[in-house]
Design a binder for these strands. Structure first.
Lengths: 217, 217
DNA sequence: TGATATCGGTTGGTTTTACAACGGAAAGGA
DNA sequence: TCCTTTCCGTTGTAAAACCAACCGATATCA
């Protein structure tokens, strides 16, 4: 467990917690540690998630499978990333997604109540505030995605998306973390239609771009 | 303040808290109470929200205004409802929405840290768990909305939407809380296009409906 | 170097949606 | 009752997006 302390301290859950406090905290919170091999499934859609996971090593994927069997990758979780927190804390219903192991992974699972129960410790409030911030920030992200998806035309989706990115990156020249196909998936449109729309927007001098680098005018 | 206790106890924030504990809790948490007249604006997009609101009486609206000045109603908050919690706890950035008073309103404003600071009280963990559940449940709701909006065809949006409602209501005969225009707004499509799509789906025996009552086959 | 794969742009035909306009049914008020 | 408003469905046309296929550029690797 000790060898993962550096990763844990980098996670949002243990932000502003000092290394010295970790042994005691983990002893109280009692996360369970589990190891998974690449290709295995951690959670199956339909399961009820009573814990959330923190990836210490390896990589896992959140995937959604529709009726016709094709799977869609919703997120890639890397070390220090967490997953399932909303389902664990909402304490309602079953998972609409599955979690697959991409690279051999070590995962810590936390019980929501165990975290809340440490409130009386000196580090308790910080831990709780971190957890709240994680949940709240997620809501803001989802809100932004909804704003993008609510646009009916591709050009409006693109502009909304880029303006939100711009607000995050604080500069006119944007590097976005997607290739065309991924960007199209995020916007909920066809790749070729996105390419066409981008070309027209460049012609109309709304923006300029090269590969995944964009500039808004 | 005392006269609002019944409303407060009905809110998700004070769920499972007993009336007897309220005076002490509110004394510690120190919410500020403010009164607003219909037509006034509580928060303006661009403000930074360091508190969240709980509506004790009256009604307020969350509205989004785009560049061209037309406003879109995102939510109607009634007594016992809360707003701004995600922005308050994320402690980041500025509001992308405004909050308007529809009917003369009394609102309690809570500071996030003040709530967390009560963790040591007997009722503290319950209060914190409530807050987490509020944030987490909101994420799940937003996730579902994203699932609907991600569908590219109107019929798929309708089916996804109705299937999710069905999962909530646990029966085949659904009563949805929207009229056509509102349903179209939620799905992100034209009202008339929605009507046409519904008509075709009825013809294909995918579902039946009358006004806002739906049955899935 | 040649073979292969990935990525992004382009094009043309097809499908779907948007948009605007109209009409009928139902509800509510004067 | 009449008038007005609201709600929902229908229609035809225009606009937009989808979809499949193809092409060239670039990268990777044997």
């Amino acid at each position: 467990m000790e060898k993962f302390y550096p990763v844990l301290l980098k996670s949002n859950l243990f932000k502003h917690i000092s290394l010295a406090d970790m042994p005691m905290l983990l002893d109280k919170v009692e996360p369970s540690i589990r190891y998974f091999s690449a290709g295995n499934r951690i959670w199956q859609a339909g399961d009820s998630a009573k814990e959330f996971g923190l990836v210490c090593a390896g990589k896992v994927q959140i995937v959604k499978e529709n009726q016709r069997g094709n799977r869609m990758i919703l997120a890639l979780i890397e070390p220090a990333g967490i997953f399932g927190e909303a389902y664990a804390y909402a304490a309602a219903g079953t998972l609409p997604v599955s979690v697959d192991v991409v690279e051999d992974a070590t995962v810590l699972f936390f019980r929501p109540v165990k975290l809340i129960a440490q409130a009386h410790l000196p580090q308790g409030p910080q831990l709780i505030q971190n957890m709240m911030q994680i949940l709240a920030t997620k809501s803001l992200m989802l809100n932004q995605k909804i704003e993008v998806l609510s646009q009916r035309k591709i050009t409006d989706k693109v502009l909304t998306f880029l303006q939100l990115e711009q607000a995050k990156q604080h500069r006119n020249h944007l590097v976005i973390p997607y290739n065309r196909q991924e960007m199209a998936d995020f916007l909920g449109v066809e790749r070729s239609a996105l390419s066409t729309a981008l070309g027209e927007m460049k012609k109309e001098r709304l923006l300029d771009y090269h590969k995944n680098e964009f500039t808004l005018f």
